[in-house]
Design a protein around this nucleic acid. Sequence first.
DNA 1: TGAGAGTTGTTATTAATTTGACATTCTTTT
DNA 2: AAAAGAATGTCAAATTAATAACAACTCTCA
Lengths: 209, 209
Amino acid sequence: MKDKNISVAVIRRLPKYHRYLKELLDKDIRRISSKELSSIIGFTASQIRQDLNNFGGFGQQGYGYNVEDLYSEISKILGLTRKYNVVIVGAGNLGQALANYASFGRLGFDLKALFDINPKFMGLKINDVEVLDMDKFESFVNENNVEIVYICTSRAGAQDVADHIQKTNVKAIWNFAPIDLKVKEDIIVENVHLIDNLLTVSYFLKENQ
Amino acid sequence: MKDKNISVAVIRRLPKYHRYLKELLDKDIRRISSKELSSIIGFTASQIRQDLNNFGGFGQQGYGYNVEDLYSEISKILGLTRKYNVVIVGAGNLGQALANYASFGRLGFDLKALFDINPKFMGLKINDVEVLDMDKFESFVNENNVEIVYICTSRAGAQDVADHIQKTNVKAIWNFAPIDLKVKEDIIVENVHLIDNLLTVSYFLKENQ
DNA sequence: TGAGAGTTGTTATTAATTTGACATTCTTTT
DNA sequence: AAAAGAATGTCAAATTAATAACAACTCTCA
């Protein structure tokens, strides 16, 4: 694995490779060429070969790629060879939806608790995981080695949560609140702006008329 | 508004402009230069000017941009000057979360119904909108001029919903199921792969060690 | 009213990304 | 065992995107 100066564009394609390779595995397909993969994943064969070669020569000339090996390599690259303890802040619908999303757990993202400030959620169990009071947040995440926090609060509450997080050992934030969070540099923040996505839909709708 | 051969990269930045300009408006800031905007939004001033000039000269030399006008122009570009009827398929947590997300409605995305196949949801009202049986889907969307469908089903159900949609006048799909849907060319599909996003977080986590 | 400062719109330049080409290597078949 | 076919890894070219530069214009303030 070489792994130097890989562009973000490449990184953001990796999960798609991971997803499609899993599908191939499930269909018991053992071997695939960049050309075949191209036809199902929609990237050019050239791009596929170049993307993969950023990390090492996983293929074999004259043969193609072994699906299982490639899946395993990409899993490694994506950091999926170990577990991550995570918690969710905000036990509303979105928080509950993520808590119930089995595939996250299957990939190694272990949900340890949900947190909320609303008393009505306290003690509730979602998919066997308990909702706790926000009071206990900082001590809980440090004691349980939580590395990732999913923020599913309202816009108003999100920066507040981020401020709490900065006092802990949490390393990354996956933020669904419609705000770009400000945190110290060493915390990884991935903002998911659903609304941005919907607005591109309306743009293309308008263009198509 | 010129509007020819605008790259997707530019389009995907527009919602961010829209979001930040709304914030400025709310703070009663009337005027902004590309330089100031750059410092809060994080794009270079040059990129901001070039992005905006794809659609027309909205600024004034020596002055900058009028925030209200610019917000209004970007709203127009994004197709936000009219309403869109939408329905949600899948009344689970995610479907309910989206149904409760007020800002979508505020921007003109009018939720007309939710649909599900599970009898336990039938008749339930979420944010004043009823859950209907999937049986009624095709007739309902055509009668109510539904243009966008949010798919919040499991992976297994999603392509099935997409097939129903192809028999209607629906123009766009906003898909949250972890699958790349196959539909006829004239339907706009925006896939939201949450898991892809989480995997980039784990990649960066691994890299940061 | 006029000079100076500020800021855009736009062209030029640089950087990044994608695509294409092909020599090399491995597989398969006879 | 040899030849033909297939597919990679990688370098080069082409395309696309981002940044920089600057002339032209507007505003502000003396």
